[in-house]
C-alpha cells in the first residue's frame, strides 16, 4: 500500500452492471479514511444498456474538477473488457487497468474477445480477473462488482474495517447473508490477480 495523496479512478461498464454500486462502496470507505471525494456519475439514457463511466477522485486536499483529466487516472476499473479499453487515454503513463474478463455482449459488432484481451495485456499495467468465477466462490454470481471492489481496494490505502463498514451501510437492509457474500467477494477480489 503506498501513501499517495490523490487517487483518480475511472469506473466503466454497461448500464445495469452495477458501476454505481462499486463507486458507492469505494467512496464510502474512502470518506471513513478521511479522504475528500468527488464522484461523477451517469444517470438517464445511457443507463439503458449503454456504455457508462463514473469518474471517482479521492484526495487528501481540495478537488476542483468533477471530471478526471485525460492522462491523470491511476486506475481504470471495468466491469467488462471492451468498456475498459474505451477510457485508456485517461490513464497515466504508469496507470493500471483492472477488468473483469467476461464480455457483456449486447451489441452486434462486439469484437473477438481474444483481440480485446490482447490489447489489454499489451498495456504497461493490467490485470484481467475472472470475477464471475470468484463471485460464485464468494456465494453469488451477482457479487461480481464486489470482487472488483476488492481488486481495486488492495491498491488503495483503505482499511478492511472501512470497506466492511461501507458494505454494511449499503447492504444491511438486504440482510446479513448479502452483506456476508459481498464481504467474501471483496476478499476474493483482493486475493486475485
Amino acid at each position: 500500500m503506498n501513501k499517495k495523496n490523490t487517487y483518480d479512478i475511472i469506473l466503466s461498464g454497461v448500464g445495469g452492471q452495477g458501476v454505481l454500486t462499486v463507486a458507492a462502496v469505494i467512496s464510502r470507505a474512502a470518506i471513513k479514511e478521511g479522504f475528500t471525494i468527488r464522484q461523477s456519475e451517469v444517470h438517464g439514457m445511457s443507463q439503458r444498456g449503454g456504455a457508462v463511466v463514473a469518474h471517482m477522485r479521492l484526495s487528501r486536499s481540495e478537488i476542483v474538477s468533477d471530471l478526471i483529466p485525460k492522462g491523470n487516472a491511476d486506475f481504470i476499473l471495468s466491469m467488462e473488457p471492451l468498456e475498459s479499453l474505451r477510457y485508456v487515454e485517461y490513464l497515466k503513463p504508469d496507470g493500471k487497468l483492472i477488468t473483469a474478463s467476461k464480455p457483456y455482449m449486447n451489441i452486434p459488432d462486439y469484437p473477438e474477445i481474444q483481440e480485446i484481451l490482447d490489447k489489454i495485456q499489451a498495456l504497461p499495467h493490467s490485470t484481467v480477473i475472472d470475477a464471475e468465477h470468484l463471485a460464485k466462490e464468494a456465494g453469488s454470481s451477482r457479487a461480481v462488482n464486489m470482487v472488483l471492489v476488492g481488486a481495486l481496494a488492495k491498491e488503495l490505502p483503505l482499511q478492511d474495517e472501512s470497506l466492511k463498514a461501507a458494505v454494511e451501510d449499503l447492504f444491511s437492509r438486504k440482510g446479513e447473508r448479502v452483506v456476508e457474500i459481498n464481504l467474501n467477494a471483496i476478499v476474493q477480489g483482493k486475493n486475485a490477480g
Binding site: 483529466p69 485508456v88 490513464l91 503513463p93 490489447k119 498495456l123
Partner: peptide, 30 residues
C-alpha cells in the same frame, strides 16, 4: 472538460496511455 479548455490556455495534451487501434464499436443505450 479539463482537457478541452487546455488549448485556450496554450497547453498541450497531457501525456497518457494509448492502445494501437483505437476503433472500438460504440455501445449506445437500448
Amino acid at each position: 472538460t479539463p482537457d478541452n479548455v487546455r488549448p485556450a490556455l496554450g497547453l498541450a495534451k497531457r501525456a497518457s496511455q494509448k492502445f494501437s487501434d483505437e476503433t472500438l464499436p460504440g455501445r449506445p443505450p437500448q
